[in-house]
Simulated assay, not measured.
Amino acid sequence: MLIPALDLIDGRVVRLYQGDFNQKTEYPLDPLAQAQSYQAAGAEWLHLVDLDGAKNPDKRQQALLKRITQESGLRCQAGGGIRTQQDLDDLFAAGIERVVIGSTAVNNADLVRHWFAEYGTDAIVLALDVNIADDGRAMVATHGWQESSSLTLDDVLNRYLEVGCRHVLCTDISKDGTLTGTNVELYQRYKALYPNIQWQASGGVSNLQDLIDLKQVNCDSVILGKSLLTGQFELAEAIKCWQNA
């Protein structure tokens, strides 16, 4: 499916270029109204990134997240600085159905594996952001892409298969926010290697052909952020394209 995304700072819709807070674009949109417009266009899910919460969990935009889940008509997944069990509980209390976990999943696998057992495999999305090395390996980055790990995407995935990992949001960092096309080969490779995982592609989608290309390599879902905010295409036409691809 296609999943529209909203990144939020202080109640405002923003986009960061390749995760850089110093390269921020703010859009004059009301987050709830924008979410409702996506629901009207045919979306079923919404991806929310609480960038305030990513910097400081005490600043999590809890009230806004709850309002969006209650009034948008969309099922929501959300992330941003998930470090403790209380962070998960707060998001679930706000009506979030799936919590998106990034750096903590890389750096504290035992804890996150426990959360899979505690909350169930459908309640957690692993957000694994990668840099493609010269030898083609997908190397996982953490902490808003400011730090690189020594782990490949395969290394991290293999820690979670036995606890039933089902949802992975994978971003090619070099593509994020660039509108330069998506890394189709990455998702084709990993869907073939890990067919039981529901893959969410993220980064670089700029036109409808990008969606067709991803659908044709059996990618399960695509996150749409900047492409919708900048009017590269309308969500309704994108959904129709995806369904017919």
Rank of each mutant, 00 (worst) to 15 (best):
Val100His: 02
Leu126Asp: 03
Asp122Ala: 15
Val106Asn: 03
Arg83Lys: 13
Ala127Phe: 03
Ala105Phe: 12
Gly120Phe: 10
Val140Gln: 07
Ala123Gln: 11
Gly80Ala: 12
Leu111Asp: 02
Thr104Ala: 08
Ala94Ser: 14
Arg113Trp: 05
Gly81Asn: 10
Leu88Arg: 02
Trp145Thr: 05
Ala109Cys: 07
Glu147Leu: 11
Asn131Glu: 14
Glu118Met: 10
Val100Ile: 14
Asn131Ala: 09
Ile132Tyr: 05
Gly79Thr: 12
Asp89His: 04
Ile132Gln: 10
Glu118Tyr: 08
Ala94Phe: 01
Thr121Cys: 07
Met139Ala: 06
Ala93Trp: 06
Asp129Ala: 12
Ala78Trp: 05
Asp110Ala: 15
Gly136Gln: 10
Val112Ser: 01
Ala138Thr: 09
Leu128Asp: 01
Ser149Gly: 07
Gly80Tyr: 02
Ile101Trp: 08
Tyr119Lys: 10
Arg75Val: 12
Asp89Val: 15
Asn131His: 13
Asp134Arg: 15
Ser103Glu: 07
Arg83Tyr: 05
Val100Glu: 01
Tyr119Phe: 15
Leu74Gln: 04
Ala133Glu: 15
Ala138Cys: 14
Glu97Phe: 04
Asp89Arg: 09
Asp90Pro: 00
Asn108Lys: 12
Tyr119Arg: 10
Leu91Gly: 00
Leu91Val: 04
Arg98Asn: 08
Trp115Asp: 03
Trp145Gln: 09
Ser148Gln: 13
Ala133Asn: 12
Gly79Glu: 06
Glu147His: 13
Ala105His: 10
Asn108Arg: 13
